[in-house]
Design a protein around this nucleic acid. Structure first.
Ligand SMILES: [Mn+2]
Ligand SMILES: [Mn+2]
Ligand SMILES: [Zn+2]
Ligand SMILES: [Zn+2]
Lengths: 169, 169
DNA sequence: TCAAGTATTTTGACTCATTCAAAATATTGA
DNA sequence: TCAATATTTTGAATGAGTCAAAATACTTGA
């Protein structure tokens, strides 16, 4: 309900404007959404909002600890309201799907690097990469999110001898 | 020496062109360099090289497993030639310095997520965030790399009453 | 040795996600 | 109500790449 959401922001010293509330709601409603997606949702919620307001709200919410920003390689930043529980993410290389992975006992050790080299560590960010169940099932095979895929292939017009045959195997 | 470097690329089915060798050398000489930095180094090495060739060489080298690309949040991609040893990185939030962290026994467990949600995991990427020794020493305090820092501050011209006093504490 | 077929590099335009700066509005407290 | 402050909007600009096509270079079979 509206009142409690506004109160929630206030409790964290964030003045609850219409735009900020809409952004917050959009994030809660669809975790791991991009700024663009949030802009769409908040827009259809409020009627109209500027992209800049979305970015402003996002950085304010992140700065005040109400929202977490994650930035998987090759994807725009994603936002979620699950904060302070140090959970991790698993990303599908084929379709980009992101899922939460709880920080299990087995994973906890991640938090202390063996030799911290004199750094003062405040966060250990773990991203697992692989293929999601549905991509596995459908046997999909490569995509823009797979960093090991070279996207600039030579045009191979005929089957005649190649310059360097097994270069792109 | 040149010959052995060319041979090294050949052994991995990468035709050793001048540009690719220069890029490879630049990476070896300065680990965790950006594409732009590599462009500079390779350029001063070869005399001239196009930015596109640098990107082409980089993606070919990454695709063929000779080079690893890492993408810390808020930074352009970084390249290094330490591959296949699954080491991790520690990044300074203040100055952006990146250091290698060996994957110690204590860290290994990171590699198997407790519940993989049906994903087939092929990589666990771990990034530690914090403050490096020299930033700690110099008492530096915030920067562009710190995601918890809001970069769009209100202009606070006078010391008179604030709209929402402790919002940006 | 040449020519055709490939591979590679260069050039320049373009995209995307995000940020910057300034103008326009809204809100506050005196 | 007014001035100060906060917030939102607007529109331009940026950085890090990618795309497409033209220019060059290399290889191989005739
Ligand atoms: Mn999450
Ligand atoms: Mn490294
Ligand atoms: Zn998938
Ligand atoms: Zn530092």
């Amino acid at each position: 309900m509206a009142i409690s959401e506004a109160q929630f922001l206030k409790d964290h010293d964030v003045h609850p404007t219409a735009q900020r509330l809409a952004v917050m709601r959009a994030i809660s409603a669809s975790p791991h959404a991009t700024a663009d997606h949030i802009f769409e949702i908040a827009g259809s919620d409020l009627g109209v909002i500027s992209r800049q307001s979305v970015y402003d709200a996002l950085s304010l919410l992140v700065a005040s600890g109400l929202v977490r920003r994650i930035q998987p390689s090759g994807s725009p930043a994603l936002y979620e309201d699950r904060v302070n529980d140090n959970h991790h993410h698993i990303v599908c290389r084929l379709c980009g799907t992101v899922r939460d992975v709880d920080c299990s006992v087995g994973l906890r050790p991640c938090l202390d690097a063996d030799d911290t080299l004199g750094f003062e560590i405040d966060e250990a960010e773990v991203a697992f990469w692989g293929r999601c169940p549905s991509c596995l099932a459908s046997g999909r095979v490569a995509s823009a999110l797979d960093p090991s895929t070279d996207r600039r292939q030579a045009k191979r017009s005929s089957a005649v001898p190649q310059y360097h045959p097994d270069q792109n195997r």
